[in-house]
Simulated assay, not measured.
Amino acid sequence: MGRGRAKAKQTKVARDLKYRTHETDFGALARELHGEQDGAESPDGGDDHDEWSDYAERDRT
């Protein structure tokens, strides 16, 4: 019970993915999968700071 709304949404999303045309940049996809850098900074801002390291240091004290 109560699955009707969730199933309807999944059906809507599946139809949208099936019938909508996508403009896929396969070159960008290949660069991302191979890890090549084209001189641009990374999507997360480019800093190498690990956000979880702050918590690890605090727990050790």
Rank of each mutant, 00 (worst) to 15 (best):
38 D>V: 02
22 H>W: 14
23 E>A: 10
39 G>A: 02
18 K>Y: 10
13 V>H: 00
21 T>R: 15
9 K>T: 13
16 D>S: 07
52 W>C: 08
37 Q>K: 11
47 D>L: 12
50 D>K: 09
40 A>H: 10
21 T>C: 08
61 T>R: 15
24 T>C: 07
3 R>C: 12
49 H>I: 14
10 Q>L: 12
38 D>A: 04
61 T>Q: 13
2 G>M: 13
28 A>Q: 12
54 D>P: 02
14 A>C: 01
44 D>Q: 06
32 E>I: 04
47 D>E: 13
44 D>L: 10
2 G>E: 13
55 Y>P: 03
22 H>D: 09
37 Q>E: 09
22 H>E: 12
29 L>G: 03
25 D>F: 06
14 A>W: 02
48 D>Q: 11
22 H>Q: 09
8 A>D: 09
35 G>E: 04
7 K>H: 06
44 D>V: 02
30 A>H: 03
27 G>I: 10
18 K>P: 00
8 A>P: 00
57 E>H: 05
25 D>G: 02
6 A>F: 06
10 Q>V: 04
8 A>N: 07
5 R>P: 01
50 D>I: 04
19 Y>I: 03
7 K>S: 03
52 W>I: 09
3 R>D: 12
8 A>M: 05
56 A>V: 15
24 T>G: 00
55 Y>T: 06
53 S>A: 15
